Simulated assay, not measured.
Amino acid sequence: MLPPKYGTPSLQAILKKNVNDYFELRHVKPTGNFSLYLKCALLLGAYLGLYIHLVFFTPVAFLAIGECVLLGLLTAFIGFNVMHDGAHGSFSRHPWVNRLAALSLDVLGASSFMWNVKHNMVHHAYTNVDGVDDDINARPFLRLCDTQKRLRLHRYQHLYFWALYALLYFFWIFFTDYKKYFTRKVGVVPLKPLRWKDHLLFWGFKLLYPFVYILLPMYCCGVIPWLVGYLIVACVAGFTLSTVFQLAHTVEETAFPVAAQPSNRIEDEWVLTQLKSTANFATKNRLVTWCLGGLNFQIEHHLFPKISHVHYPAIGRIIRQTCKDLGIPYIEHRRMSLALASHVSHLKKMGRRP
């Protein structure tokens, strides 16, 4: 399937003007600020401290298990807060700082190069478009939209999805990055040519990961303690990452655009498809917003990915009011539990709907 085309844009100019006015009137830069840099230091410092304590000063079992859970959460939180802004160029006004922030993903085991293509270039451009958006391709294990083939096992996907989400981190690090690298594609979208330094960074960090997270901890702690700890960290990180991204796009209220054929064109303009296929959740909860790097403001992120997440609560009020004035969708769940319930209900319907 080829990536589709969109209808003629008209809403984007209105939203862009309203949001730009906010920054211009307040003389505020749309990139990160001191609060973001402080949060980055806290998250990275806590992560490094926990790693050192677990590997070199291994505590008793019950305390080590708790620290492994925290390390798994911090893995996801660094991805949400540091890597994500850096990869979108919104962490700082300095490109080299953004690149450094994005490289935190490579340190954690995944490839920032592959993420840039999969997330920035494909997912943001073709959100929830089956056959193009790789984020909704969990076949054969999950059926996430009506256009995907239904299998008998999907009748139970609303029960077993928890286990699959916990495996995301393993799958990402040890399979999907390599698949993209060797096939030179993200789904149906070809990768841009890799330069020599892209190859070097890819393999350099992929070789560093087993030393830092497997061999060294195994040597210092023993095989069984390492294995238990590693499984806890990876499963907590995978489940957290998967759940947050799914609550933003695969819930009952979101749409899955289908291009008309043979023109391969989606009638709605790009902005409207983003509003129909994306959902916010728990935007009044400051703790959730802080931990998730503003990804609960997914609408704001998709419409303005170059704006740092620290500004999402402010521009969210503008975008919500603009959508209300224009009579266009703005999907939001007041609490995270409501978004999770909607996601489970969606999985149940997709598993039983012919």
Rank of each mutant, 00 (worst) to 15 (best):
P4T: 07
G7S: 00
G7W: 05
G7R: 05
S10L: 06
S10M: 10
L11K: 10
Q12R: 12
L15C: 08
V19P: 03
F23R: 09
F23L: 04
E24H: 14
R26Y: 05
H27K: 15
H27V: 09
P30A: 13
P30T: 02
F34N: 03
S35E: 06
L38P: 15
L38S: 14
C40R: 15
C40H: 11
G45S: 11
L48F: 11
G49C: 06
I52A: 09
V55D: 04
F57K: 10
F57P: 13
P59Q: 08
P59Y: 03
F62W: 12
G66P: 08
C68W: 01
T75M: 11
F80T: 01
H84A: 03
G86W: 10
S90C: 04
S92I: 13
N98K: 10
L103A: 06
S104C: 09
L105I: 01
D106R: 14
V117Y: 07
H119E: 02
H123F: 11
D133H: 14
D135A: 12
F141N: 04
K149F: 00
R150L: 06
R152L: 02
Y156W: 15
L159R: 13
L159Y: 15
L159Q: 13
Y160F: 11
W162K: 12
A166H: 06
F170P: 00
K180T: 04
Y181C: 01
F182Y: 06
T183P: 00
T183G: 04
V186W: 01
V186I: 11
G187Y: 14
R195I: 00
L201C: 03
F211R: 01
V212I: 13
I224S: 04
P225D: 01
W226M: 05
V228Q: 00
I232L: 00
A237G: 03
S242A: 13
F245I: 14
Q246W: 08
T250D: 06
T254V: 08
A259N: 09
P262W: 11
P262K: 06
N264P: 07
N264T: 05
N264A: 05
N264R: 12
L275R: 15
K276N: 12
S277R: 07
T278E: 06
V288C: 10
V288I: 11
W290Q: 03
C291M: 15
G294M: 04
G294T: 10
L295T: 07
F297G: 12
Q298I: 07
H301G: 05
F304V: 07
F304G: 01
I307D: 00
H309C: 08
V310H: 05
H311F: 09
R317G: 02
R320F: 08
C323A: 09
I331P: 09
I331L: 14
H333D: 05
R334Q: 14
R334D: 13
L340V: 12
L340Y: 10
H343I: 06
H346T: 10
K349V: 01
M350P: 01
P354F: 06
